[in-house]
Nucleic acid binder design. Structure first.
Lengths: 190, 190
DNA sequence: AACACCATGTAAGCTGTTACATGATTAA
DNA sequence: TTAATCATGTAACAGCTTACATGGTGTT
């Protein structure tokens, strides 16, 4: 049996937390998982249909007044079993494409000043992320969710915060190093 | 004009460091860039051909005795200009798929012990990465490369080390939290 | 002779994004 | 009525991996 792609299981895992629509899933992924996962609409809807066809999730129409109707998917017992089996497999290696790092690695092709500005922009992004993470933490603290799901959510949130913090520290360090180098250069030219 | 994919420029950037063959590029990416970038053979060779067709790199056959001949690509002046233009564009957002984090996020579907073992495996991977990074640092220190390229290499190497370190710290913290939770649970059952 | 590494390339097929099409509801 | 958000889906295309095919060279 060819191993199914992780996208299937990512969605199955979310349905195991609570029943969701495709729209919910997209939102959840963007808001909560974005620091280590992504799924687009173009994948979510076909994958939901497939999960439904395979009997791993059940689709039901939720009629609502005041808001558009929606298709809510609920994980089945077989779905949970498949999810657990997948969770036990060794994880695939991390896949990453960090264009900002790549560009800095090629920084020798630009001026030091341009690279300093690039690092500044990275820092801005990190500060915005930091604020978003802090909001999550507050929301979490307010909810006082003692469930297992709450615990694992807290763990990955903490990882996100630690990574964010260390990246910010790196920005400071890198800026300082480049500024020193820039000053050394000006002195030599004089 | 449709914006070309970053793969083109990643390869162009490597050729700007020194002339390389497809094989060299693959090796370099795996050894040096793997913490933030990846390119497979299936992309490298077609992209090299395209760069050559567009006049951004020149291909030449290097005949060697004692080793197989190889096709070495050298960046052209136009290639350097295109590279600089790309470097100045704002970077694409980070793309990441971290299956290990995703699985831990879904940890509530497994036992605490299973999740602890998963974290142990992550830690092992990180320790191996740490050793590889330390080797790089030593090689760097030995070379005493004072060029700009050496400086930018050192910067991204440093980022890699800081991220590795903080991830290891997170493993310790997460293990401790889960162990506490596990003990609390056993007490309650008693 | 076998294995490891060097070296180049292609084809099939999956993965994943983007743009498009469609329409409901709510608030300004 | 305009914009924002909620909501579902598809089609075209680009990105990317994997397996395969092929062959040279060096070491054990």
């Amino acid at each position: 049996m060819p191993r199914k792609s992780s996208g299937n299981y990512a969605i199955l895992g979310l349905l195991a937390i609570e029943p969701m629509s495709g729209y919910d899933i997209r939102k959840f992924v963007q808001e909560v998982l974005s620091s280590f996962w992504n799924e687009s609409y173009g994948r979510i809807y076909p994958l939901l249909a497939e999960l439904s066809r395979q009997g791993l999730a059940r689709k039901r129409l939720e009629r609502r007044t005041g808001k558009p109707d929606r298709h809510v998917y609920q994980i089945s017992q077989r779905g949970r079993a498949e999810l657990r089996a997948w969770l036990r497999l060794p994880p695939q290696p991390i896949q990453i494409r960090n264009e900002a790092s790549l560009k800095l690695f090629f920084g020798a092709n630009l001026s030091i000043q341009e690279n300093l500005r690039a690092i500044e922009r990275v820092r801005d992004r990190l500060l915005r992320e930091k604020a978003a993470l802090a909001e999550f933490e507050e929301a979490q603290a307010r909810e006082r969710d003692e469930s297992d799901q709450g615990e694992y959510f807290a763990l990955v949130l903490r990882l996100g915060q630690m990574l964010n913090q260390v990246r910010l520290r790196w920005c400071d360090e890198a800026s300082e190093r480049l500024e020193r180098r820039s000053r050394r250069r000006t002195r030599k030219e004089a």
